[in-house]
Design a protein around this nucleic acid. Structure first.
Length: 106
DNA sequence: ACTTTGACTTCGG
DNA sequence: TCCGAAGCCAAAG
């Protein structure tokens, strides 16, 4: 499985109204520390829930209008912002454990 | 094959 | 709370 596919798959698992961090997505995809690859995938791909991916601490790492749009979209999904950050305690999405006894195909 | 590029993360001051 | 440095990994040029 190539990294991009896993990252895309991980992002697709984020439910509406929830968010994840770049690092979180990377870990969820099975590549801890590959946060930058998550960025790469988000930039080069369309059709992904890019607005549900934030930086560490629930901070939006985008600049300009994109940041505003991201915030707008998240609020539209019910995500609550506290200042410039998202309330991670309520909206951070926990990715399913990578390989546990239950629920794996591979 | 090598260098650059990213919407990052974490730690220390 | 803010800033800088180091660590991180793969894709694109």
């Amino acid at each position: 499985m190539i990294i991009q596919a896993r990252i895309v798959a991980a992002i697709r698992k984020i439910p509406r109204g929830k968010v994840a961090t770049y690092g979180g997505v990377a870990r969820g995809a099975g590549y801890p520390g590959a946060a930058r690859q998550v960025v790469g995938v988000l930039r080069r791909s369309f059709g992904l829930a890019w607005h549900r991916v934030l930086g560490a601490g629930g901070q939006i790492k985008l600049r300009g209008d994109s940041a505003l749009e991201q915030r707008f979209r998240l609020e539209a999904e019910g995500v609550i912002f506290r200042g410039r950050r998202v309330d991670m305690k309520r909206h951070e999405f926990k990715f399913p454990p990578k390989r546990s006894a239950a629920g794996r195909r591979k």
